[in-house]
Structures are given as structure tokens and as C-alpha cells.
Nucleic acid binder design. Structure first.
Lengths: 137, 137
DNA sequence: TGTAATCCCTACTAAATTGATAGGATTAAT
DNA sequence: ATTAATCCTATCAATTTAGTAGGGATTACA
């Protein structure tokens, strides 16, 4: 299941992408419009900023804005920041690989085989989708 | 991330499918061979039996065996029993659909759009994979 | 220069889920 | 009977998730 964090994060990014204005978008505005607890959203946007997807401006009339064009923001990056590894098991993760304690031979592991396929198909979607796609009405 | 329950369950099913003998396979044997806590495995196999994927024989020389041929056991069914819904959000789940509280219009929801694609690609894998595929060396 | 608005940061907490464990009841083979 | 297996219920500890609290730092603007 997708975490609320990821769900809220995606919604917030979409909201920012859709907002035409040059001004940064405020947390309070997004929280209200998307029905997200404001303090929780704050921490999510902070993560997105630290990971380089968002930038921010402090102080009055401050807020968040996209660091790049929506069409340049890939779901692979967004999902890895918000949800963590895309693979369902560490032993098939490209970016967060870890060997299983129990599994003596990955090549013979049925779980490994299956999850590689799932990973590849999910990756295909995320690599082919940008924030611009999400923001289309 | 895949739960241990699912991982153990898949490994156990594979083990049973690979065991050529006519005799049912005992929990203790699987637990030892696959390094799974026995009591935990018991509860997992019980779930698989209740869902109709496994059958069992009680008492001495009892154990578990597949209810159908490995090639007839689809990953869609196994995963739904072990891991729950295949979709990452209830609002795109085929078998466990639920509307989101917050989302006024699913057609306009960016999360919904994205997760439908992920679901479809994951389903494609699970529909095309049976226990026989997992059991091949 | 003061004040309000905004992001930034750390720490904490409640609820849910996960990954087991415990202890016995039931069933069947010998 | 004895032994070996599944079956069943309850409980528990650890982890993760979702959210809250409280204030600090920065900026715009009157």
C-alpha cells in the first residue's frame, strides 16, 4: 500500500505543477485545497526540497516551487524520495540492494525471480511518467 | 515492501511444488529447509489452506499439499491471499475497491491515474506467472 | 524598525501493522 | 496408548506510519 506521505506528496507536487503563477505556492494553500494536515505536509515538502525536487523561498510571500520543469521530473525520482525503494524486496533493488540473510542463492530463489519482473514493469511506468503527465487534466 | 509473510508463503509454496513425492510435506521440514520460524509458517500455511490454495492432512505423517497443479496456481490468487490487494491504493483496486475520503473526483486525481498504470503492469506479471514458473530451477 | 507571514527543525506521541511466540486442542498412524 | 502432525486462539514486542507540538529563522512590507 502507498503511504499517506507518498500520496500527499504526489498530490502536492501536482498542485504546484498546475499552479500557473510565478509565485511560490504556500503550504497552507496546498493543505487546505488538498485536505492534508498542514504540519504533516510541511515535513513532506521539506523532504522533497532536501532531495532537490522542490525549491523554497522563506518569509512572507514565500513558499515552494518546482526546481525543474514538470516534464523533467520523473516519477522514478519522486517515488524513491517519498516511498523509498521501488523494488518489493531489497535483493532486487537497483538503488538499495541488499542480500537476503536466508537466501543462499538468488538465482534459484523463486521470490527473487518474480519480484524482478514486478520491479521491471513498475520501473517502466515510473520512467515513462513525469509530473507533467500527472498534472494534465 | 513485501511482507515476510508473503515471502515465506511463496517460498513454502515453491518448496511444496518442487517436492516430487506423493506424501504431504510437513511444516517442520519446510521451516528447517527455508529457515522460517516454524510457528509463523504454520499460521501462513493455515491461511493458504483456508483460502483453498493448499490442502492438508492431519495427524502422523500429515502435512500440506497443493490443491491443484502448480501450473494452475496463479500468482494473482496467491498474492491476494498473502499480501492483500495488488493495487497500491484502494481506489484503483479491482477486488478491494474503496473510494478515497479526500478525493472528490477520481478522474482528475493524479495519484489515481498513476496507480492504475502500476496496477495494470503488476497484474500482467501476476496473471502470467504460476507456481510452476516459480518452481523451475 | 516592528510585525506578520512563511519556511525550517527537532522532538515527541498515538495508532496500526508486522513478525512473531505460547500453549494447548484435535486428529490420525502405529 | 503413544507419538506426531495440523489446528486454533490469544498474546506480545518491535517497527512503521501518521500526525502533533513548539518554537527558530528568515523575509516582505508598513
Amino acid at each position: 500500500m502507498l503511504s499517506k506521505k507518498t500520496k500527499y506528496g504526489l498530490k502536492a507536487l501536482t498542485y504546484i505543477a498546475r499552479s500557473e503563477a510565478d509565485n511560490p505556492v504556500q503550504v497552507s494553500e496546498i493543505a487546505k485545497s488538498e485536505q492534508i494536515p498542514q504540519k504533516f505536509l510541511e515535513s513532506i515538502l521539506l523532504t522533497l526540497r532536501k532531495s532537490g525536487i522542490l525549491s523554497s523561498k522563506k518569509g512572507k510571500h514565500g513558499g515552494y516551487y518546482l526546481r525543474s520543469e514538470p516534464s523533467e521530473i520523473k516519477m522514478t525520482d519522486v517515488m524513491r524520495v517519498l516511498e523509498g525503494p521501488i523494488a518489493m524486496v531489497p535483493c532486487v533493488s537497483l538503488n538499495f540492494y541488499e542480500k537476503c540473510d536466508d537466501c543462499p542463492d538468488e538465482d534459484k530463489c523463486s521470490v527473487n525471480k518474480l519480484m524482478i519482473q514486478v520491479r521491471d514493469n513498475t520501473l517502466k511506468v515510473f520512467r515513462n511518467t513525469t509530473l507533467a503527465d500527472l498534472s494534465e487534466v
